[in-house]
Amino acid sequence: MTGAAEQPALSVRSLSKRFGERMAYEQISFEVGRGEVFGFLGPNGAGKTTMVRTLGTLIAPSAGSASVAGVPLSEANGVEIRRRIAIMPESPGLYQRLSVRDNLACFADLYEVPAPARRIAEVLSMVGLAERAAELCGALSKGLRQRVALARALLSEPQVLFLDEPTSGLDPAAARDVHELIEGMRERGVTVFLTTHRLEEAERLCDRVAILNTTLRSIGRPAELRDQLFTRALLVRTASALADPAAVFASLPALEGWHAQGDSAYLLEAADISALAPHAVRALVAAGADVLAVEERRHSLEDVYLELVGERREEAAR
């Protein structure tokens, strides 16, 4: 028998959601392990928020099945699932006329949090708002409201925390604060399901990412996705152009191909860059070249994302 702790935090099997004629997402399958920070990336309208709402039991899927925090996704299990999770929507959705403390007190009652006053003080301390508990939410900056929304999501000590675009519209300093809070969640072992447009955010925070554009385009660790999509390559810069680069590179072990990048730079493709690099440097020196730089060419998660969602092809078509 599989214990609850061994079950994935989220298990999604062939899930689809249709609104009339429009398909929000289609045939999505993935699993998220307990304590994992999982990024869900995609362009506007890709179905990210709809997926969060579905897994949060706010809307019903059109087809497929899922389990959330170990509970099968169904209308009958809605209350039990919502007890085990918390959702922080893109817009904080705070009661502007109520104080920070009153906002949290309401949600502490809705989650039936034991010892609510103590727990409210704890979560406010976690998000650095202990001193501002009495202030009205309407008077807070957007960044501070986002922190209150995060405190609200943490009140019930959820097993799975859904963060829908948590840094949307925040300035870099406020976004960094939110990132630190998410890293804190990871240290506490909370499973985080993060939807975002900010690819550097996903790359920095997420153990694995899924790229969605109505259908699931790819899923894996950011480095794995890069390797799947792009051949690894070594970028070599020399002081001047090589007289016969083909002759220099011909005997390199592990080399899969090469091409020039301008007058005096060469891109050497190989599956194992670390095996190639020393041989390449030796060959260049032996050929009398002045080597200025040897570096691995890195593709960002943004490259992966753009490749997968097809924007590059659209740009090329234009």
Partner: peptide, 14 residues
């Protein structure tokens, strides 16, 4: 109107 319905409905409240 206030955008507070979604957080409210995300809780275990029936």
């Amino acid at each position: 109107l206030q955008g507070t319905l979604e957080p409210l409905l995300s809780t275990p409240v029936q």
